[in-house]
Write a protein that binds this DNA or RNA. Structure first.
Lengths: 206, 206
DNA sequence: TTTTATTGATTGAACGTTCAATAAAAAAAT
DNA sequence: ATTTTTTTATTGAACGTTCAATCAATAAAA
């Protein structure tokens, strides 16, 4: 049933099928045939549209990272309040967005994280994303803290977000997004409160 | 040069070689031949001592988990101070022990973490370890907090520890153990302080 | 009729496992 | 002490399987 203009449709189909396959059996046992079956097409089509399996995997990771940035960006642009607290809150919310946290995307992400240790291209993508999260956090914290404290707050919160993600992906029942958000926000409260308590600026940032 | 009593030596050699191989090229490209080459033996020996590649991988994960429990246990038994703070501090220190955090072990662990999502046996091992960390933390926090707060503190700290680990394993330069410890301890301070501030018990736990 | 999209059998490479052969040490016999 | 036998440890070539990639054939739309 070949019609004209199939390319974007097939590409999206195959990316979704890749996540479904990784969710189902893990990256190690994700073969081109399994992906193709999920998408309802033949195996050969993958090389045709993505140049090969690696190309499809890379495109899939790109999509996940793009979706994540989008989820954060949407929330930050929608803010009425321009306070550091509001921005950081939006970053937390974006990172625990439904589409990111739900089954396939979460497991696919963790699989790519592990894989990125030894695949330069994936490592590059993951690094760019990491740095953006860190520098966004750092920039906001710097509005209310000295540099060193802001740096540590950013690193701590980034670690907490990743840790909640990791534990969520590994839990058979999946991530409890509500609880993860609660823990992250509570930590954020503590970072602000702690800074307030040990500093003459006191409570004006609460 | 076959001598008698080679079994424990070879087993350890092969487990170490497995970590070296995973550190070098990642789990996906770790073949029995590569492991054997690292250990200076032939490929066939793996099936002889571990029944196959999977057996060796499982034994390797077991060793990593055992080493980690050991690093924590040693520090807890050595405590002079029996306070919750001291116990939790020891758990943090154990989790960032040199042997755990250094190159091969860290990358191997992350690789197994990801892999455990779809391999029941690895999942079981990882679950047991997870639960022990959580329940140890929870038990100590409960000595100074109500149940719900203790539960959240335990989950938050566990997430922070895992997050620092994860980010350390992914960083090309490896985990900066000193900074990780500092961030975890600072978070612990905040958990205690926060509880103190919002509670009549005030500062007695600082 | 031409163009675009898709198929699926085929190919070659890589992998884990097996097992008969081998070699060295230990034990037994001389 | 020396030789022979037995036991233990190890090898590596061969086998069967699995997989990604290729490409000539095909089918539907333009």
């Amino acid at each position: 049933m070949p019609k004209v203009g199939m390319e974007p449709i097939r590409r999206q189909q195959l990316i979704n099928a890749t996540m479904a396959a990784i969710d189902e059996v893990g990256l190690a046992e994700t073969t081109v045939m399994r992906i193709a079956r999920h998408a309802g097409v033949s195996a050969g089509i993958i090389s045709h549209y993505f140049g090969g399996k690696d190309g499809l995997l890379e495109a899939t990771m790109r999509q996940i990272l793009t979706d994540l940035s989008g989820a954060v960006a949407v929330r930050r642009y929608a803010l009425e309040d321009d306070s550091p607290r509001a921005h950081i809150g939006a970053i937390i919310e974006g990172n625990f967005d439904r589409t990111q946290v739900t089954g396939p995307a979460a497991k696919t992400w963790l699989a790519f994280w592990a894989s990125s240790m030894h695949k330069p291209m994936l490592q590059r993508l993951q690094n760019v994303n990491d740095r953006r999260l860190y520098s966004n956090l750092c920039h906001q914290f710097r509005r209310v803290m000295p540099r060193v404290e802001a740096r540590n707050a950013a690193r701590g919160l980034a670690a907490m977000i990743d840790g909640l993600w990791l534990r969520g992906a590994l839990t058979p029942e999946g991530l409890d997004a509500e609880e993860a958000r609660y823990l992250a926000h509570t930590y954020l409260d503590q970072l602000f409160a702690h800074h307030g308590c040990t500093n003459k600026a006191s409570n004006i940032y609460l």
